[in-house]
């Protein structure tokens, strides 16, 4: 799947996007743990990060599928 990082998460991960392979039946929670292991600096955002799956805000328990696009979203401030 494709993981895209935004704002502070992009800086902390030092990446705009990356291809990630997760085991079958992984959830957003599992992916979050994997990403934090790969990019330890992301742990400073723990608790405030949200994830989207295919452009919709996801819950920690949301199931992931091959080909999904996941967004790593720090607190937002539009308008």
């Amino acid at each position: 799947m494709k993981v895209r990082y935004f704002a502070l998460a992009r800086e902390l991960a030092s990446a705009e996007s990356e291809a990630v392979t997760v085991p079958e039946r992984s959830s957003v929670r599992d992916l979050a743990r994997m990403l934090e292991e790969a990019h330890p600096a992301l742990s400073s955002l723990r608790g405030s990060l949200k994830f989207s799956v295919n452009f919709d805000v996801a819950e920690p328990g949301t199931a992931l599928n091959e080909g999904d696009e996941v967004g790593v979203l720090p607190p937002v401030a539009g308008g």
């Binding site: 935004f6 704002a7 502070l8 405030s48 949200k50 989207s52 919709d56 805000v57 967004g71 979203l73 720090p74 607190p75 937002v76 401030a77 539009g78 308008g79």
Partner: peptide, 25 residues
Amino acid sequence: TLPLWKRESLSGGGEAWTKGEPIGA
């Protein structure tokens, strides 16, 4: 609920991400 972020250019120099709120569904 929109995935948007602001980076401020500060008058004293430097830049900072605006503090926000976790995105709502």
